[in-house]
Structure formats: C-alpha cells, structure tokens
Design a protein around this nucleic acid. Sequence first.
RNA 1: GGCCCCGUCGUCUAGCGGCCUAGGACACUUGGUUUUCAUCCAAGAGAUCGCGGGUUCGAUUCCCGCCGGGGUCACCA
Length: 487
Amino acid sequence: MTVRTRMAPSPTGEYHIGGMRTLLYNYALAKKHNGQFILRIEDTDRERFVEGAMERLIRVIKDYGFSWDEGPEVGGPHAPYIQSERLDIYKKHALELVEKGHAYYCFCTKERLEELRESQKAQGKPTTKYDKHCLSLSKEEIQEKLNSGIPYVIRLNVPENNTVVVKDKILGEITFPTNDIDDQVLLKSDGYPTYHLAVVVDDHLMEINYVLRGMEWLPSTPKHILLYKAFGWDLPIYAHLPLLKEKGGTQKLSKRMGSVAATEFLAEGYLPEALNNFLMFLGWNPGTEKEIYSLEEFINDFSIEKVGKTDLVSFDRDKLLWYNGYYIRQLSAEELFNRLSAWSEKHNIKLYEGAVDNEYVIKVTSLVQERLKTLKEFTEVTEYFFREPKVDQTLLVKQTGSKEKSEDILNSYLNLYSSINKADWTAEFLDEKSHELLKEKEYKPKEAFMTIRVAVSGETATPPLFEVLTLLGKEKTLMRIKQHLSN
RNA sequence: GGCCCCGUCGUCUAGCGGCCUAGGACACUUGGUUUUCAUCCAAGAGAUCGCGGGUUCGAUUCCCGCCGGGGUCACCA
C-alpha cells in the first residue's frame, strides 16, 4: 500500500508554527515509505477567508524546505486541490448520504437553533445537541420547502445508543458514545461543505490513508468515522499529535511570548534546518541520544510509534535558539554570508552601513559566526566594522581606572602600530608585537587590550582583538586610537 | 458542566516489571582554554517518577480511585 498523507491548511491567516510541525510529520511519513505528500487548501469558510493567505501559505511551506507531490501549483490526479473548487463534489456526496438515510435536510433557522441551545442549557443538560427536529419531515414537506427556496443545511444523522471506536496509532482505542455526538452540519446553507464533510470526502477521493493531525481533532474523529461508514469507505489510519504550548505555562503559543507564525521565525533570522530540527522533537524523539537531524535523517528515523502521548508539548524558545546557533556555526563563512544576503534581501533588512566588497563582509562574518544565534543579530554585533563607533569615554576610562593610564596605553600602542608596515599587519604579528610592548611597559594584559578594544570598537565584547584590528586595517586602527588622545 | 486525552529533573524527553542509587539534551552553576564575548572541553546541581490504594517476590512501568493540566462541545477549521 502506498502511503499517502496530506496537510490541509486553511487560508485564514498566517500559517502557524504548529501547523508546520504537523506538516513535517506528514511529509516525513509519506517520504519514509516512498509515498506521496499532498497539499490541500481548505477554504470552505468564506467568512474567515483572508485575501492572499493561500499564496503566503504556499510560500512559507516552500521556505521551510518542503514540497508536495500533489496540490496547488503542481496539480495531480485528484485535482483540484482547493476545496472551494470542489463544491459540486461535496454536494453530490451529501445528497448521496441523504439518499441512503445517513443524512437529512434541516430547515431550522439560526434563531431556532439558538433558542434550542438556550433551553437545553436552562434545563441543565450537560451538553447541547440538535434535536433532530427536521428528521421527522415527510418527503412532501421537504420537497415543498425546497421548492419555495427556504435555506437548508444537510445534517449527519447520528445513530442513537451506539458507540464509535477511534483507533488511534498514538493514543490507542478510544470509545465515544454516539449519544454524545451532535448531528453535525455537513453542507452549509451557502452550499459550502463544513470541514467534516470536506475532509472525509477529499481524504477518501485523494486516497489519503494516514491522517496525522493535532489533538484538537480527536473529539470530531467519531463524526468522520461515521461518515466513512455511511459512505461505505475504508478508514484511514489516525494519529493525533500532541498540542503545543508556551514553555513554563499551560497556555497555547502566545504572541506575547514571541513569534507564532511560521513566517515570523524566518524573518527573525532562524534557519529552516534549525526550525525543522526543533519542530521534529516537538512530540517525537528517536529513542536514542541523537538530536541533530537533517530532514533526510528524520525521514529515515521517523515513525508514528515514536510519537509521545503527552498532550501538551512545550515550545522551548531557548532550545530553538540553541539549534539555530548550532546550525549557523556549521555553515562555512561563505555559506553564512550567502544566507545573510538572501535573508536581508527577502526581509528587506539592511545588514550593514556603507558600500564594502563581499570579501570584507565574509571576513566579518567569519569573525562573528560563532557568536550569532540568529541572522538578525549580525547587524548589531558588527556595527563597528562598517562605520565609526560611538565610544563611551566613561567606558573607555573604566578599563584602566584613570584617564592618564588609558591615554598612556593608547599612546604606546599608537606608536607601536604606526611603526608596523602594512605588509606585516596580520593578527599573528600584531599579537606578538602587542605582547612585547605589554612586557616592556608592564601593562596588565586585560587593561591594555580592553582599552584598545573599547577605543576601536566601542564594545567590551568583540571577537579576538588582533583579528579585529587586522580586519579593520592599519589606517582605521590608528585613526580610531588617535581620536581618544587629547593632543 | 458532559465527553475525551494526558501526568518522569525548570523545559523537551528516554524508560515499554528487575539493567534505574532514573539516562540524554536545552537552560543553570563551577572549572579549564582565553585580553573580552562566544565557541569548545570537563565537572556539578537538578525528578521521593502527581497523590492514594491495589496486582506482583519486585512497580516509573499493569489495574482502580482521586487530584492536576489540556482538548472539545458552531451553518470555524
């Protein structure tokens, strides 16, 4: 059996990072078994539809490094893959169910439904349900209402006093009494299907045999199973994934704690491979101590059996940061530079001031690489390489404790560096000479080098000093030191 | 509230009856490398396995109850 999985997002806003995790698992499962991964757009809610959301959705999925075997843009044997283009299919199937007696027309107004719910609540019923009022309508009555154009929906006729067993690959067998299941609307009055009808019909037609989705869908799975049975179709294999929560709390991912949209993480300078690696472990783990995973390795090692049952998984932003730093460090300076360039262009963020050649930027990149946790940090960490730094005089003096001492050090090193030929201006040579002077003048390494560091960069934390001076060049180094001398 | 799911270091988890005086990673602390920061290396601290009953020679692992957390109860997905 060919494994076919899908991700079916709704174009109602920005794609959530949790959705990307679900997509990743679906993708990996299909690829592991040389099956197909399908992308389907579930745009059946016209009220929540957001213009351009579908395009952005497709964009971000690609940006994370995924592709689909069937779906929008690429097509496939079961096209179209956009639900709003499949309306006749859903209607036909809804009618088929009516024909078979598994569904029925309902002409109840929203007002009546509202009143019904109110009265059920007033009666202290634990849960509100549709009362099957329209199920008792005769064929003639239905036809009459249909003819006079009264709006209708089609509801699933849930059998009473029965049970539905959900066989979940992760959770095991879960039994739901049918009496707890509402007669779900399948076809809305605007002719669009509800999610429940659309998923089942499409998943069947598109031959999806593994459904991996978030835990929030578990309670509606019995409805879907009822539908499969009503149609006489084979069930897919279900697996409900743990939900994501903010670390430390019990609440869902929150904007207040940071990004939640998949695209925001990219804009903040996270690498797709780091993001994906992080996402892999949100509910799954290989059972070994391996934790660095490429997408290929994940595809190889992934299995539903290894997905945990924990209902809430913490989205640990610190760990994400660690992964990102790790992946940044793995890149060569050139690769990192290319990533940086592409990223700044895409997100319209200026990496540095002024016009310099790439050669220089690559050298800067290599110096700060192991200090970077996100691409975004590049700019603030490298400012002094691209423009004259603003040096806080208090900070400068603080390195020695007295203005005289600071000036003495700066003077000594100014003289030393002035005497060094441009040809000898290398980190090794500067290091050697600087230490010689240190001995001669009996400066403490820390106060001497920190003074120069601050004078030249305005920062107390930089890459190794002589590397910085080398990159800056003789002229700039002398100029920056000179600025702090009174005469 | 009804129904359903879940419950191991701060966090993500390993564990599928004895290998556990509970392992790894992130975060944290300390030490080493070092002129700073970061990296890297080493060490350390951190979990009476939610609680209470069983079952068993033996329970983190199996069963029940309780408590706690979560999900869901729409013509939204």
